[in-house]
Design a protein around this nucleic acid. Structure first.
Lengths: 159, 159
DNA sequence: CTCATTTGATTGACATGTCAATTATGTATG
DNA sequence: CATACATAATTGACATGTCAATCAAATGAG
């Protein structure tokens, strides 16, 4: 029953496009700042942040992937590039010979420390400063709603 | 003078990360639907949409790039791939021999027509349906504020 | 007209992301 | 133990994105 609901209105569609385009523009702007301030990509930063917060500055590859919401293959490729630059190192895992442990290398640690304050400043300037405190709170609720909806088993066809 | 303002609070930072991650997750979900429904990528869709709305289904390459907010080099590469698939064609420009005109090819038109309803449905299911009408309106204001702030000459250092 | 500069567009090199194998190891079951 | 299956991670092929040349045609100053 419940026939297919209507398609988005023109207004809804405009909000959707603005939403996606703005997020994309913000991502690009933050990424450019990070790059020029510290020669790190957003991906590098995410990996280094997770490792910095990890017990002993090391983490199982799969756990790291889950932590930053990446596919394992994507992480593998990225770690390969980061390893070549000396930012991280990979070690065999003692408890599971299939596994790998990713370890924060000294160069990675110092790059991350140099990047963090400029990065946080960029987030403040480009995101927080653009909004009133009420809007920041509203944004939090908004993304929570979107995320909750996304997490549901996408009901295609049987609604 | 106005000394450097404080860095984002933990709450603000969490909202920022959720915002970016959610936008990214949504983009991926919409992209997956588009791909499986129509074998078009979001990039393909953006190009085809712009051409469909254009006078005579054709557009100068630079105008197209501006319309969809892409760098020209990115567009060049993408058009090359789309041309190989027969979705668009490139013709020389009569008024400016340097220029190129991008033309919607029949295959591109039919692919676009097949994609648009499923795509709009996906936008409704994944975005609009997740929010109350009030939240959609709030989202519109939010991105407008972010966008307006982004458009300002990024005041680095001299604030 | 001529030469330097700007503009429209493409190209090549490379970073990043996705998907479908592949490899090797762990686990469970008869 | 032996076979089947699941799991951890990597790999290769390819699509996409960015950046810095490159190239040719238009423009503009002398």
């Amino acid at each position: 029953m419940a026939r297919t609901r209507t398609l988005p209105t023109a207004d809804e569609l405009r909000v959707w496009r603005d939403y996606i385009e703005t997020a994309e523009a913000l991502r690009a702007a933050i990424s450019a700042r990070l790059q020029s301030d510290s020669a790190l990509s957003p991906g590098d930063y995410a990996v280094l942040l997770a490792l910095s917060e990890a017990e002993g500055h090391r983490m199982r590859s799969s756990d790291l992937a889950a932590r930053i919401h990446w596919e394992r293959s994507r992480l593998s490729h990225h770690l390969g590039r980061m390893e070549k630059r000396g930012l991280i190192a990979r070690e065999e895992c003692v408890t599971d010979s299939r596994g790998a442990e990713v370890v924060l290398a000294p160069a990675g640690e110092s790059a991350f420390h140099g990047a963090t304050v400029p990065h946080l400043r960029a987030v403040r300037e480009l995101f927080v400063d653009a909004l009133t405190p009420q809007q920041v709170a509203a944004a939090g609720e908004l993304v929570a709603a979107l995320r909750a909806h996304l997490a549901q088993p996408a009901d295609r066809g049987t609604e």
